[in-house]
Amino acid sequence: MRSEASLHRPPRRPWAWLWVFAASQGLVVAVWWAIGWRWGLPLLLASHLAVVWGTLRPGSRLFSPVLSRLPGGARTVWLTIDDGPSADTGAILDLLDAHGAKATFFLVGARALARPDAVREIVRRGHGIGNHSFDHPSAWFWALPPAAMRAQVDRAQAALATTAGAPPRWFRAVVGMANPFVGPALARHGLTRVAWSARGFDAVEPDPDRVLARIERQLRPGAIVLLHEGARHGRNPETLARVLQRLDALDYRAVLPDEPDVRA
């Protein structure tokens, strides 16, 4: 049996990437000096492109550990719902209850402070919470410098600890993009970064059937399913209902990572 503790892997050496990057730049200089720019320039570009790739790819482990799926072969999935709390939260909770499903809500700190009763209701009904930044700067979260990144994580962690009664242990980067400064911010709070293995783009796609089709193509035992609430198109609860119905039909159970059904 795999416990939540074994899945919970905060960054242990959050600045290790800096030493590796510094060594790579030293190699670039040495090659450029010894052989010339025709070899040095491609090496320089490759080293910087690696940083860009590690930042923009949600499942990248270049800068910090990340959980992209649950272990084992049991027909279980981890439903994760981003961007709340919102006006949709109550309807989403009712749907989860109706299907006997559990989910982790990755909450935005400022929105949690605006809807503390919704946060408490999530916890009361037995669901999990995660840190999803303080004010969800979707256009530039990936480019935040160290102090601003730390503030996003710190302030959200404080807001969620206040509203939920305990600090979360999970973190999801905004739009999934985690730059080199996310790891140190997570290490301060013992947070584990969570990505996903199945998504339907329901934050922007208003058609529940299209969302479901995308998710189903990626569905496997242990999948971490990315969903949202509060999207402008207003159809997130309807989409969740379709997903839950399909999970039931396929004999999948939506569980939290610390439940006994999560097996190695």
Rank of each mutant, 00 (worst) to 15 (best):
A103I: 06
F106W: 04
G109N: 09
R111M: 11
R111Q: 14
L113M: 14
R115L: 09
R115Y: 01
R115P: 00
A118R: 13
V123Y: 10
R124N: 08
G126V: 06
G126F: 12
D135A: 12
P137Y: 02
S138Y: 15
A139S: 15
W140E: 15
L144E: 12
P145V: 01
P146L: 09
P146Q: 07
P146C: 10
A147N: 11
A148S: 14
M149G: 05
M149N: 04
A151T: 08
V153K: 05
R155N: 11
Q157F: 07
A159G: 06
T162D: 15
G165M: 11
W170H: 10
W170S: 11
R172A: 13
A173D: 04
V174T: 14
V175A: 15
V175W: 09
M177E: 15
A178D: 10
G183F: 05
L186V: 10
R188S: 13
R188G: 09
H189Q: 08
G190S: 09
G190I: 01
T192F: 11
R193D: 05
V194K: 06
W196Q: 02
S197E: 08
A198G: 13
A198L: 13
F201T: 11
E205K: 06
R210I: 11
V211L: 11
L212I: 01
R214C: 01
E216F: 00
R217E: 14
L219K: 11
P221V: 01
P221M: 03
G222R: 04
E229G: 01
E229A: 00
G230E: 05
G230Y: 01
A231Y: 12
H233I: 04
G234K: 05
P237G: 07
E238P: 05
L240F: 00
L240Y: 03
A241L: 13
V243H: 07
V243K: 09
